[in-house]
Each structure stands twice: as structure tokens, then as C-alpha cells.
Write a protein that binds this DNA or RNA. Structure first.
Length: 874
RNA sequence: GCCCAGUUGGCGCAGUGGUAGCGCGUUCCCUUGACAUGGGAAAGGUCACAGGUUCAAAUCCUGUACUGGGCACCA
């Protein structure tokens, strides 16, 4: 016998142990079954998982389990990402807390510590994924920096090099002063900040007035190599060709013309600093201007800044502005908002810096992904991300892949005086030194779907599971990761790495704010699992995972899901209580039911059951778990438990016979089929229940995943039964409502009489339903008119009179009925308007007209009954 | 500046042409042999605004406002 309340902890532990022991989620490629593979977005080894990871991985697990239940051979590959800058930052913080730093430690010792950290962190993360119930193939664990992946990285680099798609060059790159490394364009985020626009006077070399330039960053003037004005700008025409002097250092720079310069902005004169601004860099190229670095990689001003050399950016800014003002160079200072670029890892302001870096040429590589998108070989769900994705590929710029950090794949290029650089994994010999930089962490991530299957080797796994089916990730890494995987996969294997990308939202706090440690609003998924159970957390997330939308996460939703889990548990308890002992039990299977002899509730629930399962399946096929969760929740709670179980009670308590057996068959079958449908979302409780009931269902699979979805055997769809049942329910509800409003004690059985076209059904074949669900002592036809001292309940096709001598308050009853009447009148107006509309239109569908007519007539009938009753009461 | 989403009861969200739904919360009643992690009944919304298309609009179109996001930026 099951416990009264579901206790997730012991169940989860036991189920995980059993799944592991059976290697349930391990897969070897085999012939015959359709492959369905997913590679996990490898979490960075930066710490523990957060609730966003819980969402991401529950989605994947739901899809994997769903596909497996449909008969696919599924493969879900686990792993972690070394996480480059992000992880190195974590370690640097640790070192700082120990009053140490990586330079003091040295590269080798630092890397050793990183390895140790990585081992611990991987264990934590994979343990958490395991706890979440993820049916990952634990025997395939991969890491972006392990040996097989290192081989893949080298092979990719070498291949791109050989194809001429990798080059080294001095370019203006996004430089994070704090992280001490270059970043790619997408790793620099833009942020609007308040600042000032400074108007600075540059004297003319010949002693004349000179020009006034406007800039937000006065300190870059030490790197100026020209001042540009618009050729059509009469104001500055006189200055063109002359030379002006940079304040404080008096370096002379030419005044040139370029139509890029806007008249309206600032003074119309633009100082040009090719080494510190992207636009200036391009202007510099156009006019063959030299590039002078005024700010170094450490964020401090260089010798070019003369007296300011050695000051930090921030200090120098204040000092230079003060001095400009003191010396009369500052002509004007106005408030100005400008977009600054910040580092996506540490949020500090990025400095455009001229430096020697490695780049991957992108235009060529972007062609195949665009073609794949156009051809429909690659789809993004939801579709609205396809346009930004396409735009990014179309406007793509070369990818800076070198990072001046230590944690990562070292660039496999070796240098020796007088020799061409050599691409090699191993040292080519004495005298050669390896490039000190490492590759962007996204370089190895881009190879992930290939590398986890052993690429570049032509492995069986690669043949079986590449291309993979689905990639599940957040929109924040659509370009950073998704697009790059497409480029690499197509470049190396000629096939998309995954056919579908499912883009989900981010999990926010309950008021919709982004979770962050500093706000203190982060939700720990482990805590949620501890408090409410893993299935509850998973269900809560899935029920809100509408395609592409963010989730406002409230712990209450987990409590609600926990309640649903418990409801499922208890409905099972009820079913088991009403079955014969296992030894005596036959197997209850839908195909054994006598189709022609089922009663209304049976026909109804089977029809609803079939619809719910179909909805759940198609929703999961369409990557819409919220719709699947909703369909199953409503079916199980509001239909199966609230109505069917209640209706079946009478039969189960009654005499043995076909009717009781039918009820048992349906209870067991519908329960088992629903468990299977629910299993992708809540694997633990469904597995536990399945173990308890599968014997009755004639199933022998050890685990739910091994059995596949239930085959209903035939089409149970039955619109007539659904309609009839909904009328019964409405009749029952009308009596319940009356009882409640007249304060009839719930336990008190009452007598009722009924009239109307649907009354024979209520009194006759559905008599037992009405009796038990509405707590009636009896229900009889009206004989000789309305009973005196009775209350009235008007439902569609049937009116009940409940004699309540002494109990009934006539004023209250009139009030109640008046309300119903008003509702009926309102309905009539609406229905009549609709009917008029429809009759005026030639194109109106016949069924719509018939339905509207029916609704109209029903409302009319209801109104008439209510009017009569009110008249009698007055 | 351009583009894309969103705007529905107190809160969070479904709902792509035919009388507005769900969860949580709220009110009243109920410890009746599955479940108080429960049951029953109820209150609560002119579906952001303005036009338009249609017999019929929360739903389709146009515009506006606000919110969020993406992209690109005039230093």
C-alpha cells in the first residue's frame, strides 16, 4: 500500500539508483531505430547550477524521454565547458582572497590549480544534473578541454589555417583592461551611460585661432593623428590643410576633410584617434594616418601622453579635464549620453586597443549556415529568432579568437626567428616557442556537437548521431554559440550540427527581475528539490516554459506542482485500493473493453483521455512543454479525478460484474497511459507509480522508458458522449450551486424532482450520477406541477425543484434566481446578435449556425423556466 | 535610429475569427474511507489606446503609448 502522501526523497534516491544500475540512459548506436540525439549546452565550470540550468536541462530531458517513448534511439551527451575567461575570473577571485595572484603563481602552477578546481566543479555540476533526473548517457561525459576535444580543436584550427581562413594581424580589438585580454565583438556589450561632451580647443601651429573639437574622452587626444571636418562645412574650410597642436604635448596634427564628419554634432570638427576608436581606425586607413597608442593594455596612459603617462584611465580623465579647464583649453562641457562597451564577463568598460591577434575569417564560413536556414535544414523555435540570426550572419565580422589568458586551448602556433609560423600541436623542436595566447572558449564550444562523438575520427557514434536532432539553449548565446556551431559543423562535415534549435527564455524572479547575486533574488534549484521534490520543480518549470518566453518564477508554482504530484499519487492509491489482490488480478487492458456496452462516464473519459494524450504528444513534438503539461494537468485533475473517479466509486463499491470490471480496466489503463505521457516531465513519481500498477496493466517492462507510450488500440474519440456528459455535469453543478447558496449542509441528502427535455436522462440512465454527485436522496419526475416550498435549479434541458420546507428563504431564493435570469437574458442578447450576424452572411459555416441556434434556444428555455419560477415565488 | 516580442481579472500566464480561460491569491461552506498537498460553491476582466477589415475581432490589418529584447550608432 502506498503512503498517504507522496514523499519524494526516498523515491528519487531509489529510482536514480535503479536507473543507474540498469544503465538505462546509456546508448550504443544500433540499426533499425530512428536516432534522436541532443548535446548538452555544457555548463561552465564556474560553480553550481542555477535555476536557469534546471530549466534548460529539464527541457532537454523532457524531449529525450518523449522521443524515447515514441521509439527513437536517444542519445543525450553530458559534459562541461572549461569556460575560458569566466572560469579564470573565478580562480583569480579565489587567489585574491588568498592574497595571491596568478602571475606570482606562474602559468603551470596556475593551470594545475585550474585542473583541480575543474575536477571538483564538474563533479558538482554533473551530480546536480543527475539529481534533476536528467537521462544523460553518463558514459559519454565530455569536457571541452579533455584529450579528444583537444584533438578536435587542433584539427579544426589546422584545417581552417590550411584553408586560409585563419590569420594573424594587428587590428583594433575590444580589450578588457580588467581581464587583460582581447574579446570578440559579441563579447562586448553596450550600455548607455551618462557622461559629458568636452569641447577642446586645439591651437593652430601658425598661431591662428585653430579648431575646437568635441569628444567624450579627452584622454585619447594624446593618440590623435588628425582632426577631420566635413568638406562642405564652411565654418572650418579655412583650417583644412593646416596643422593644429594637441594641448599639453604640442604634437602637430593635420586638419583633413572627410564626409564622415557630421556638421551638427559637437563642433563639426572630429579628433581622430585611430588606435582607440573603431571609426577613427577606418578613417585612419582611408587617409593613411599613423596610429598612436595613448592607452596601454594595462589601462594606463602611455609615454605618448607626456606628463600623464602612467596614470590610470579614470585618474587621467579627471586630471586632464581639470588641466584643460585651468589652461583655458576647455571651451565647453555639456551633458551627453553615450553607449559604452562593457565586458560580458566582468562588466568593466572596454578599451578599443590596437593589438596583434588571431582571427577567423567569417564571411566565407557564414555562407553555408545561411543556405541551410534558407533550405529549411535548420530551424529555430520560436521562429522569430531566425531573422536576428540571419542578420547577424549576413553582417558578420571576423572573429578575434585569441585571448591573453592562460585557461584554455593554447594556440597551436610556433614561432622561430627567421621562420614562418608553424601550426603544430607538439613542439617542432629546439628554438621554437609557442604562441602564449589561448583560444576563445567559444572556439571549442563551436565544435561541441562534432567533438563529443569523436570527430575528426570517423566514428560509429558520429555516423549514428551526427547531425543531432535538437539543441536547447537560451537566446543570449544564439550568436556566441548556436551560429558558430552551425558554421563549424557545416564547414567540417557539410551537415548542420542540429536540425532544430529550441530557444527558451530566462528564469527571472517572481516580479520579473533578472536574478542576480547582488539583488539576492536567486533561486537555488537544489533547495526547491529538497523542499518540494524534483518532479515538482520540473513540472513547475515545464508548465511555464512557453516557447521562447521568460519565466517569472515563484516558489508557489512549485508548491502547486507538488500538490499535483500528490494528487496523482493519491489517485493511484485509490485505484489500487479498489483492485483485487495482485494474485487474483487479471490484466486490465483497454482492448478488452466491450466497446458497445460502456456507460456514459466510460465513453466520456476515454474520449477525453485520448484527446489529452494526443495534445501532450503533439505539444512535445512542437517543443511546447507548457501546453503538454497543461493538457495533462487538466485532464488528470479536473476530469479523471474530479469526475471519473467520483463516478466510478458507486460501481467499485457495488456488486461484482462487468460494470465494475470496466471501471477497473479504465482506471488502470488511463492511469498507466497518463503516467507515460507525464513521464517526460516528472520521471520519478511516474516511475514509482508505474512499478506499483504495471502488473495490473499487463505490462512487464522494468522501466517506463522501456515500454513506450500506451497504444489505445482504437479510436475512443466520442463527441456525443462528451456533449451528453457535459450536460450531466452542468445539471449536477446547478444543484450543487443551489445547495451551497442556500446553505444546505454538504452531507445532507436531499430529494429532487426534475422536468424538461433532458430530465428523462437524468432520472433514467444517468440517475446514479446525479444522485451521487449532487448528494440526492432521490430524483423523480415532476408529478402534478412544481412542489411547494421548493428551490429551483435551472440547467440546460433540465430544471430541478428541491423541496425545502422550512429551510428556504424566499427573498434569498428570488435574489438568486434573478441573478441567473439576468445571466440568461444577457446570453440571449449575445446569441441573438450572433444569429443575426450569421444569417446575414452567406459564408457562415452550417455547424456554426446550428450551434448558435442551439445556444440561443437553450438560453431562451432557461429564461422562461426562471421567469416562471420567480413568478411562482412572488 | 531600425527590427522583434509583449500589453488579458490582485499577481503570474494560456488563448491566432464565433457567448473570455488557467494557476496562485480572495470570500463562504465542508476533517463524507484516494488526497485538507483535499472537496464544493462564489466574487473578480468593456482583453493598453485609436482607427480599419469582417455578418462576427482578445484573435487579422494600420497607427499610437508603455515595457522588454536584438541590432546599429555622432565623436
Amino acid at each position: 500500500m502506498l503512503e498517504k502522501a507522496y514523499d519524494p526523497k526516498p523515491v528519487e534516491a531509489a529510482r536514480l539508483a535503479a536507473w543507474d544500475a540498469a544503465r538505462l540512459s546509456h546508448c550504443e548506436p544500433r540499426d533499425g531505430a530512428r536516432p534522436y540525439a541532443i548535446v548538452i549546452p555544457p555548463p561552465n565550470v564556474t560553480g553550481a547550477l542555477h535555476v536557469g540550468h534546471a530549466l534548460n536541462n529539464t527541457l532537454q530531458d523532457a524531449f529525450i524521454r518523449h522521443q524515447r517513448l515514441t521509439g527513437a534511439q536517444t542519445c543525450w551527451v553530458p559534459g562541461c565547458d572549461h569556460g575560458g575567461i569566466a572560469t579564470q575570473n573565478v580562480m583569480e577571485k579565489q587567489l585574491k582572497a588568498e592574497k595571491a595572484d596568478r602571475h606570482a603563481l606562474g602559468r603551470d602552477a596556475f593551470l594545475e590549480r585550474m585542473q583541480q578546481w575543474t575536477r571538483d566543479c564538474k563533479k558538482t555540476i554533473l551530480g546536480q544534473l543527475h539529481r534533476l533526473g536528467c537521462s544523460l548517457d553518463w558514459e559519454r561525459e565530455a569536457f571541452t578541454m579533455d584529450e579528444p576535444r583537444a584533438k578536435a580543436v587542433f584539427h579544426a584550427f589546422k584545417t581552417l589555417w590550411d584553408r586560409g581562413l585563419i590569420y594573424r594581424g594587428e587590428r583594433l580589438v575590444n580589450w578588457c583592461v580588467r581581464c587583460g585580454t582581447a574579446l570578440s565583438d559579441i563579447e562586448a556589450e553596450r550600455e548607455e551611460r551618462k557622461g559629458a561632451l568636452y569641447h577642446i580647443h586645439y591651437r593652430c601651429e601658425d598661431g591662428s585661432e585653430g579648431v575646437v573639437v568635441a569628444t567624450t574622452r579627452p584622454i585619447t587626444m594624446f593618440g590623435d593623428t588628425a582632426v577631420a571636418v566635413n568638406p562642405k562645412d564652411a565654418r572650418w574650410k579655412r583650417m583644412v590643410g593646416k596643422k593644429v597642436l594637441i594641448p599639453f604635448i604640442d604634437r602637430a596634427i593635420p586638419v583633413i576633410e572627410d564626409s564622415y564628419v557630421e556638421f551638427e554634432f559637437g563642433t563639426g570638427a572630429l579628433k581622430i584617434t585611430p588606435a582607440h576608436d573603431q571609426n577613427d581606425w577606418e578613417l585612419g586607413l582611408r587617409h593613411k594616418l599613423p596610429a598612436i597608442k595613448a592607452i596601454g593594455p594595462d589601462g594606463k596612459l602611455t609615454e605618448a601622453a607626456g606628463p600623464y603617462a602612467g596614470l590610470s584611465r579614470e585618474k587621467a580623465q579627471d586630471q586632464v579635464v581639470a588641466d584643460l579647464e585651468a589652461r583655458g583649453f576647455l571651451r565647453k562641457k555639456e551633458d551627453h549620453k553615450s553607449a559604452v562597451q562593457t565586458c560580458y564577463r566582468c562588466n568593466s568598460v572596454i578599451e578599443p586597443l590596437l593589438s596583434l591577434q588571431w582571427f577567423v575569417q567569417q564571411t566565407e564560413l557564414a555562407k553555408a549556415p545561411l543556405k541551410a536556414l534558407d533550405a529549411g535544414e535548420f530551424k529555430i523555435y520560436p521562429k522569430n529568432w531566425e531573422k536576428p540570426y540571419r542578420d547577424w550572419l549576413v553582417n558578420i565580422k571576423d572573429w578575434c579568437v585569441s585571448r591573453q589568458i592562460w585557461w584554455g586551448h593554447r594556440i597551436p602556433v610556433w614561432y622561430k626567428d627567421g621562420q614562418k609560423p608553424l601550426v603544430s600541436r607538439e613542439s617542432p623542436g629546439a628554438g621554437w616557442t609557442q604562441d602564449p595566447d589561448v583560444l576563445d572558449t567559444w572556439f571549442s564550444s563551436a565544435l561541441w556537437p562534432l567533438a563529443v562523438f569523436g570527430w575528426p575520427e570517423k566514428t560509429k557514434d558520429l555516423a549514428a548521431f551526427y547531425p543531432t536532432a535538437t539543441l536547447v539553449t537560451g537566446y543570449e548565446i544564439l550568436y556566441l554559440w548556436v551560429a558558430r556551431m552551425q558554421m563549424m559543423g557545416l564547414a567540417f562535415e557539410g551537415k548542420v550540427p542540429f536540425a532544430d534549435a529550441v530557444i527558451h527564455g530566462i528564469v527571472r524572479d517572481k516580479s520579473g527581475k533578472k536574478m542576480s547575486k547582488s539583488l539576492g533574488n536567486v533561486i537555488d534549484p537544489l533547495l526547491m528539490m529538497d523542499k518540494h521534490g524534483t518532479d515538482a520543480l520540473r513540472f513547475a518549470l515545464m508548465a511555464q516554459a512557453h516557447p521562447g518566453k521568460d519565466i517569472a518564477f515563484d516558489e508557489q508554482s512549485v508548491v502547486g506542482a507538488r500538490n499535483f504530484v500528490n494528487k496523482l499519487w493519491n489517485s493511484t492509491r485509490f485505484v489500487l485500493m479498489n483492485l483485487p489482490p495482485p494474485a487474483a488480478a487479471v490484466s486490465y487492458r483497454l482492448e478488452k473493453l466491450p466497446r458497445g456496452r460502456l456507460e456514459l462516464a466510460d465513453q466520456w473519459i476515454l474520449s477525453r483521455y485520448q484527446a489529452a494524450l494526443a495534445k501532450a504528444r503533439t505539444s512535445l513534438d512542437a517543443y511546447d512543454p507548457a501546453a503538454a503539461a497543461e493538457a495533462l494537468y487538466v485532464f488528470l485533475w479536473d476530469e479523471f479525478c474530479a469526475w471519473y473517479i467520483e463516478l466510478a466509486k458507486a460501481r467499485l463499491l457495488g456488486i461484482d460484474g462487468e460494470e465494475k470490471e470496466n471501471a477497473r480496466t479504465i482506471l488502470v489503463s488511463v492511469l498507466v497511459g497518463s503516467l507515460k505521457a507525464l513521464h517526460p516531465i516528472m520521471p520519478f513519481v511516474t516511475e514509482e507509480i508505474y512499478a506499483a500498477v504495471k502488473g495490473y496493466a499487463g505490462e512487464s517492462a522494468e522501466f517506463l522508458l522501456q515500454g513506450g507510450y500506451q497504444d489505445a488500440g482504437c479510436d475512443w474519440s466520442n463527441p456525443e458522449a462528451e456533449k451528453e456528459m457535459s450536460r450531466v455535469m452542468a445539471a449536477v453543478t446547478s444543484i450543487r450551486s443551489l445547495r451551497s447558496q442556500l446553505n444546505v449542509p454538504p452531507g445532507l441528502k436531499i430529494k429532487a424532482v426534475a422536468e424538461g427535455p433532458f430530465a428523462p436522462a437524468v432520472i433514467g440512465r444517468h440517475r446514479a450520477y446525479a444522485m451521487s454527485l449532487a448528494q440526492l436522496e432521490s430524483v423523480e419526475p415532476v408529478n402534478g406541477g412544481r412542489p411547494p416550498q421548493s428551490a429551483t435549479a435551472v440547467a440546460e434541458g433540465v430544471t430541478f425543484f428541491i423541496p425545502l420546507a422550512g429551510v428556504i428563504d424566499f427573498a434569498k431564493e428570488r435574489e438568486r434566481l434573478a441573478k441567473d435570469l439576468a445571466k440568461a437574458e444577457g446570453d440571449i442578447v449575445k446569441c441573438a446578435a450572433k444569429l443575426r450576424n450569421l444569417s446575414a452572411a452567406a459564408s457562415a459555416p452550417v455547424e456554426t449556425v446550428a450551434q448558435a441556434q442551439e445556444q440561443h434556444d437553450a438560453a431562451l428555455a432557461r429564461r422562461d423556466r426562471l421567469k416562471e419560477t420567480i413568478a411562482v415565488l412572488s
